[in-house]
Design a binder for these strands. Structure first.
Lengths: 199, 199
DNA sequence: CGCCGCGTTGAGCCACGTCAACATAGGTGG
DNA sequence: CCACCTATGTTGACGTGGCTCAACGCGGCG
């Protein structure tokens, strides 16, 4: 099982089944059948759906695994939508996940859930800032990181605020120098993404 | 491995290592070493701790598994406190958890995380009502369930409201007939629990 | 008996929600 | 190429739900 690795192994860049989705695109819906995924790059929101109602149910960032419930139930429990350009790979890479990888996934899911909960506590300013920092990846090494800010609608539903409040708060963060607008905002159907530098 | 089950199996009521804790008691702290636990009865809040700061990070109810991260990290990532009289058993029952039980635990954790997120959205009335219904166990079969309502302090931190707002909201729910006060309230250090009937 | 933790209730205020109008950009169809 | 529509983002005016501050009741404990 560890013999001919060189024969079957492929470079990380050539993993089969990689899927790319963009802002607002649905990776899978509640009840659908499919694989579990690991996020290689980007961000995904999970939602509970009942009829036409959607309610924010979780956040997944680079490195997180989503849809693992399909491995035991045979279908997804949530709907998954991209918050920006997102690249995913099937998980586990092959066969059945080991107990160790499952435990790591479980621990990561609980930490991420705590992150999402924290985004709904406190004042609007700190909520939005926390969300932006989360999306920026919390790397204190780099002084500045460029991120694609999700749609206001998504940020509002994640933080439990309104679109207007998020818009105003982002303006405050720009005044405070935490954010610097770079890309084009406003506009069309698939626009929505603002490039920003996070300090 | 499936041969002499009758020789080693014990009645469910005689599981070794069962632990009972009451309101406000700490099951384990961040960084501690210990077992993972499954909640047989009751409710537990998980908190992120940094220094003296505690922030609500998760909710665990009957049937949920907590502290599984200790199986991979060797220590707990959160602090666990009982919200009422709670009975716990070590998890997994013996040895290493199977992939299937881990997947079930993961799926349950994500559903519970979505529950906790929902408790921080919407108006105060619906938040507190949702929390009470969660604690009541969501069994639509019984018209009335008796539960031990946690301390206002806990309910406030879980829902992201203030103690005063939760107190007023519970009053509204009693007026609306959703709750009926039964036990003794107010008072001492270890009192804090109000028996209530939930309809 | 005094102290402390918990719960209740009231008064006032403010951060945020609500409602509205407008700007911008893309897609679509003529 | 233009007219129109839609989705998104911005900004202002206004009202209010919940936070803040405060005072008090109650019960256990040292």
């Amino acid at each position: 099982m560890q013999a001919d690795r060189s024969a079957t192994a492929a470079p990380a860049e050539a993993v089969q089944g990689i899927r790319n989705i963009t802002t607002g695109e649905v990776l899978y819906g509640t009840g659908d059948q499919g694989l579990a995924w690991r996020i290689r790059r980007g961000a995904v929101r999970l939602d509970r759906t009942s009829g036409e109602m959607r309610s924010f149910a979780g956040l997944a960032l680079t490195g997180d695994v989503i849809g693992a419930e399909t491995l035991i139930f045979g279908h997804y429990s949530f709907e998954a939508r991209a918050l920006g350009d997102t690249e995913l790979e099937p998980w586990p890479p092959s066969g059945t996940p080991s107990a160790e990888s499952l435990l790591r996934t479980l621990a990561a899911a609980e930490r991420r859930a705590a992150d999402a909960l924290a985004l709904r506590a406190g004042e609007a300013l700190s909520r939005v800032r926390q969300l932006v920092l989360l999306l920026a990846g919390e790397r204190p090494t780099l002084p500045v990181t460029r991120i694609a800010v999700p749609r206001l609608r998504d940020m509002a539903e994640i933080t439990g605020l309104t679109i207007e409040t998020v818009s105003r708060t982002l303006g405050l963060l720009q005044k405070a120098g935490v954010l610097q607008k770079q890309g084009s905002r406003g506009g069309g159907v698939r626009t929505g993404l603002t490039q920003m530098s996070v300090t």
